[in-house]
Structure formats: structure tokens, C-alpha cells
Amino acid sequence: MDAEQAHEMAILMASLTHRNPVLQELASAIYKQPDTGLQQNLFGLRFPNPVGLAAGFDKNGTTPRAMQALGFGFVEVGSITAKPSQGNPKPRAFRLPQDHSLINRMGLNNEGADVITARLADLDLDIPLGVNIAKTNDATIEGDEALQDYLYSYEKAQPVADYITINISCPNTGEGKTFEDPSALRDLLQTLEPAKAGRKPSLVKFTVDIDKRNLAELVSICEDYDISGYVATNTSSVREGLNTSNARLQTIGNGGLSGRAIRQRSTQVVRWLHEITEGKKPIVGVGGIDSAEAALEKLEAGASLLQIYTGMIYKGPGLVRELKKAIRL
């Protein structure tokens, strides 16, 4: 089956496990490994281990208990948007087996903030739950309306999330800009007010397609608004250095590249963030983590936490156990 059909099957199975305690016990018996020695406290939350599920797998928040049963130390759902969206036309997800990578242009398909946050309200997890928010995929929503769209999801996520990731690297305005534009980022954070009393810890997620100078400028803005940490990185639009043929890439077309192909560049952004923040802010490393070596590389670069998604497509849920074992050693 194609990549999106396989994803839908995986979500179906995980959602069934999420709703069934017996299946959760079975998943734990097969995959889970003790978290001894892996616990840490970051931005006021206790993480039993540093291996988390990246946003994008569970867009609608239907699987967190299943992910906990597999041994994840935290789970991030979404991206959620203020309004529901069907996303982009299919096909919109493509495997690159020669590169252990994936290209997707899903288009932020999700059931919307109201439905998803209501679903998350009754969760009782033993691990932190992150909610990743983005702007509704509608090019007509721009300017102040775009800011209010973001704010709606941010406010809806507050009661149900342990932390919130502000995804600023998806197209969000009619003119095609993103909130990684410095002025747009400042306007967004001024609107969201992450330092306001009672707010949950807020993280900002950056693209992998960024240089150190621009990253430093964005971090400086984030620090003005007391952002709790950073997620590095989102997907890439760059296609250099791939083993997949140019003909295949042209057939696929546009989309965000994830997986092993962006591992080194993602690690570089983690390293830059660690240098820019002088190691004073937690960093979630994500991008190409599909082996013990890749996980340790991110941690050595300065990441405090890790997230996986594409790596699981190629190696299965046993990857969580593999990474935890390596980190413990």
C-alpha cells in the first residue's frame, strides 16, 4: 500500500490500542523497556525518558495511550489548527526507501482544535503530552486574522496540553510567507503572550532550512517572550544529496523531506541552538533519528529530548526500545 494508506492503517491499530487496556498491556509486554536512569525534569515537567513521538504521526490525538504503552517518554500530537482541514489533494505522502526518508505535502489535515482538544480532555497519561499548533491551511486567512487563528488553537490547547509547540515553519499567509519571518514571529508571540500567567510551557519549532544568522535572530525574538525551549527541526524543501533518482523526485513534486536525509542538517541546527542559547534552554532534537548512533549524535549536539516519526516507518515501534537502551548505556 502507498505511504498514506500505511499511515492510516498504523493509526487505526494504534487508536484501537489507545482505547483498549488489554492491547496496551500487550504492547507494553512486547515493546516497553524500563526507564531507569533516563528521567529528567525540563520546563517544569517530568520526562520518564527522552524519546518522544514527533508531531505529524497522530494529527488528531487518537493514540497517546498506545504510544505510552510502546515506551515513549512523551507524545506530541498535531499539528492542530483552529478550523478543520482536509489537507492537500492525494497522493501527498511518498516513501524514499533508498534514503530511508519521506516526502509529504499533507497540508495540515486535521479535525480542528475544538474536536481534538475535547478528545484530549479525558486523557490521564503518565508521560507529558505536547500539542503542536499551526495556522489553518487557508491562504485567505492572513494578517490579523492569521494571528487570531493561531491564538484560538493556542487557547484551546492550554487546558489539555502539558506543553505547546508553536509550529512557525508552515506556509500561513496569502502571500506565502511563514512565521519564520522575524516581524511575523514577533507579531505572533506578542499575540500569543506565552509568558502570561497560567500559560503552559511553549516551545518554538524551526525549519531545517535555516542558517545560523537567521536562527540567532529568531531565537533573540523568542527569548524576548520567554519561550521555554526549541524543537529542531521541521522538514526540508531541499533535495540535494539524495540517492533517489531525479526522475522519481520530479514525479513526486513538492513536499517536506523528513528522515535520514536531513539527519546531519537537523543536528547542525540543534548544535547552533545550543550555542546561541548557551545551553540554557531545552532543545528537542528531531530529524533522521533512526538508530542509536543518530540519537546519541543529537544528544551530543545539545538536545535534551528526542522525537522520532519517519524512523519508525522504516524500523517499526521497536526503535523506541533500541534508542532507550543506547542512551542508557
Rank of each mutant, 00 (worst) to 15 (best):
N137V: 11
D138C: 09
T140M: 03
G143E: 00
G143S: 01
E145Y: 08
E145V: 10
E145W: 07
E145L: 15
A146Q: 00
L147I: 05
Q148Y: 03
Y152N: 12
S153G: 13
E155W: 07
K156G: 03
A157N: 12
A157K: 13
V160L: 10
V160S: 07
V160M: 06
D162M: 04
D162H: 14
Y163R: 09
T165M: 06
I166K: 00
N167P: 00
S169D: 09
S169W: 14
S169Q: 10
C170W: 01
P171N: 11
P171C: 11
T173P: 00
G174W: 11
G174P: 02
G174C: 07
E175H: 09
T178L: 03
F179K: 02
E180W: 11
S183F: 02
S183K: 14
L185S: 12
L185V: 09
R186T: 07
R186S: 09
D187C: 00
L188N: 02
L189K: 08
Q190R: 14
Q190C: 11
Q190N: 12
T191Y: 03
L192M: 05
P194G: 04
P194Y: 00
A195E: 14
K196W: 07
R199W: 05
K200R: 15
K200Y: 08
P201V: 01
P201I: 01
K205T: 09
K205S: 14
K205Q: 07
T207P: 03
T207Q: 10
T207R: 13
V208Y: 10
D209I: 10
D209E: 08
I210Q: 06
I210C: 06
D211W: 08
D211P: 03
K212R: 14
R213T: 14
R213S: 05
A216N: 13
S220E: 14
S220G: 10
I221Y: 14
D224P: 00
Y225V: 01
Y225M: 04
I227C: 09
S228I: 01
G229R: 05
G229I: 02
G229P: 05
N234T: 06
V238S: 12
V238W: 01
E240M: 03
L242I: 12
L242T: 15
N243H: 04
T244A: 09
T244S: 12
S245Q: 02
N246Q: 12
A247P: 07
A247S: 14
R248D: 12
Q250D: 15
T251G: 13
